[in-house]
Design a protein around this nucleic acid. Structure first.
Length: 532
RNA sequence: GGCUCGGUAGCUCAGCUGGUUAGAGCGUGGGAUUCAUAACCCCAAGGUCGGGAGUUCAAGUCUCCCCCGAGCCA
């Protein structure tokens, strides 16, 4: 079965921020992991491009909404390319095909009797694009989050009859593992327990949106538009926009990865909509935490926004991926600290992992004719490093399976630490000064090189580039965890290389006598001359 | 106002159903070493486990109250 995973469709009101990059990065690691396992993957990301806020932003900039969306979504596309994100799709809700899918989906929901007209009046925040039901502020109320004046609205809208799905949703969120991390489940449970209320799915007088068929003057409101992008995205490029066809490509999604702020919409509203349309439900919804910076919320007013493009430019992909995936428990809030960032990257990647490979390769080349030394006892499955590698493998796989990147990263790192420790214990450089120790030295170096190979393999989903450099340095063929062809899916999933990943994670894969390329540091230390 | 999740060494965090001297990494200090990217390896210092009360033979771990932070719903 196809492993479909999604990032949210990012709202193109403004240029991409670090939070979006964080989500996308995490999904990228999952997608690569699944491909390496040999699963067919559809990794979906995209842009949500409708709504009043976008219309107004565009107007303020003197652009047409479409021109504005084109410009901002191009920034997203560009950013993901530069981060080497392996997304198979980048769906835009302004894609003409999306409109057709929305119409078909809506027809199904309407046929289920789940669309009703209702009147909605109250104070409305354009920035939130939401009604604020705050009764005790009658005079010139402000939006509490945006501190902007609210507008009085009194409209006839279409509503989705969410209330009919009370029991189904209760059953769904009670399902073990549907909402992750589990710590956020209670919040949703309480929300549902209060009784689900119908929610409005359309707006009037909002030209920048998809018109609701048969209801002149109405356009779809965000959730009945953006969420459906996950379905549209399943279509092959150029394929006719038929809902059935899209579904057949890879629905249901295995996991929606989102920020914790939109958990409710993905865990409650979206499943109910799917049920109404007669579609299957996603396997899980993972709401990750937010990033702060040096203990403070990132925001324009504080002027402390970390631009993902600049971060990448100055620090490189491996460094940023490592820090975000290795140090921040996925699901919890995290704090970006520059000192810690450079400390971790330099310690873990340059000193521990990079230097391990460098020192070992140098010794092997010097004393064994630039080749992988004869394995001898280094091949034994009981070898301490063979056992450490087996432990690391299972911890890394478990971690990746559960989206616990921290644990997966830690596993690889621990193996490198074990290998460094082993080298120091055995001290082959001392042995080489004695007689009759050559076989022992060969076996020790073989085992350490083999451990380094495992580190490289385990790092493949997390740090594809460092992984490739490590494997190349060991004379191995690098893995391909990315997409086969740009924008297109592999008909049968993984590549020949990737199919072998799990098999390669067996002790003894390194061939004695194979030539070792001249070593050069696989990971440079990060020296930031100025604050980020 | 109701609810959820946190508050454990300078920093980031582990501590499962309560049970020996509360752990890891980073940072700091010291030692050892020279194969290596001044890297690696070893050792040490440092914590009244947010505060208070209670349950218990025994609480970081359970109960109640309070304080602080993040968030959800009103």
């Amino acid at each position: 079965m196809t492993f479909t995973l999604t990032t949210p469709l990012y709202y193109v009101n403004d240029k991409p921020h670090l939070g979006s990059a964080y989500t996308t990065l995490a999904c990228d690691a999952v997608a690569r992991y699944q491909r390496l396992k040999g699963e067919p993957v559809i990794f979906i990301t995209g842009c949500d491009e409708h709504g009043q806020k976008i219309q107004r932003t565009a107007e303020a900039a003197g652009l047409s909404p479409q021109a504005h969306c084109d410009a901002v979504s191009a920034q997203y596309r560009d950013l993901w390319e530069r981060w080497q994100i392996s997304n198979d799709r980048l769906i835009r809700t302004t894609d003409p095909r999306h409109r057709r899918i929305v119409e078909q989906f809506f027809a199904r929901v309407e046929a289920s009797g789940d669309i009703v007209e209702g009147r909605q009046q109250g104070w409305y925040c354009v920035a939130c694009e939401e009604f604020k039901d705050d009764p005790h502020e009658a005079q010139d109320p402000e939006c509490p989050t945006h501190r902007r004046p609210l507008e009085w609205r009194d409209e006839l809208n279409l509503f989705f009859r969410l209330s009919r799905y009370q029991e189904a949703i209760e059953a769904l969120i009670a399902r073990e593992g549907f909402i992750q991390p589990a710590s956020r489940r209670r919040e949703v449970e309480n929300f549902v327990k209060q009784g689900l209320r119908d929610f409005s799915i359309s707006r009037v007088n909002l030209p920048w949106g998809i018109p609701v068929p048969g209801h002149g003057g109405h356009t779809f409101y965000v959730w009945f538009d953006a969420l459906l992008g996950y379905l549209t995205a399943l279509l092959e490029p150029g394929e006719e926009p038929e809902l059935e066809a899209a579904i057949a490509r890879g629905w249901p999604a295995s996991v929606h990865v989102i920020g914790k702020d939109i958990l409710r919409f993905h865990a409650v509203y979206w499943p109910a909509m799917l049920l109404s349309a007669g579609l299957e439900l996603p396997g899980k919804v993972f709401g990750h935490g937010f990033l702060t910076r040096e203990g403070q919320k990132m925001g324009k007013s504080l002027g402390n926004v970390l631009d993902p493009a600049e971060l990448l430019e100055r620090c490189g992909r491996d460094a940023v991926r490592w820090y975000l995936l290795r140090d921040i428990p996925f699901g919890d809030d995290g704090d970006f600290q520059q000192q810690r960032f450079t400390d971790l990257v330099n310690n873990d990647l340059a000193n521990t992992i990079g230097n391990l490979l460098n020192r070992t390769s140098a010794m092997a080349r010097r004393w064994f004719e630039e080749c992988v030394p004869p394995a001898g006892g280094g091949l034994e499955p009981t070898h301490p490093l063979a056992q450490a590698a087996a432990t690391a493998r299972s911890q890394a796989l478990n971690g990746l399976e559960a989206l616990e990147f921290r644990s997966a990263a830690e596993a690889a790192l621990q193996l490198a630490i074990a290998a460094n420790g082993y080298l120091n214990e055995q001290a082959p450089w001392s042995r080489m000064k004695q007689e009759g120790t050559r076989d022992q030295v060969a076996a020790d170096l073989y085992a350490v090189l083999e451990a380094a190979r495992h580190v490289g393999l385990l790092l493949a989903p997390l740090l594809p580039e460092l992984s490739a450099r490590m494997l190349a340095q060991l004379g191995q063929t690098p893995l391909d965890s990315g997409i086969g062809t740009l924008g297109g899916a592999n008909p049968d999933g993984g590549t020949p290389d990737s199919r072998a990943w799990l098999e390669q994670l067996a002790w003894g894969g390194l061939v004695p006598g194979a030539t070792l390329p001249e070593p050069s540091p696989v990971m440079a230390r990060l020296e930031l001359d100025a604050p980020l």
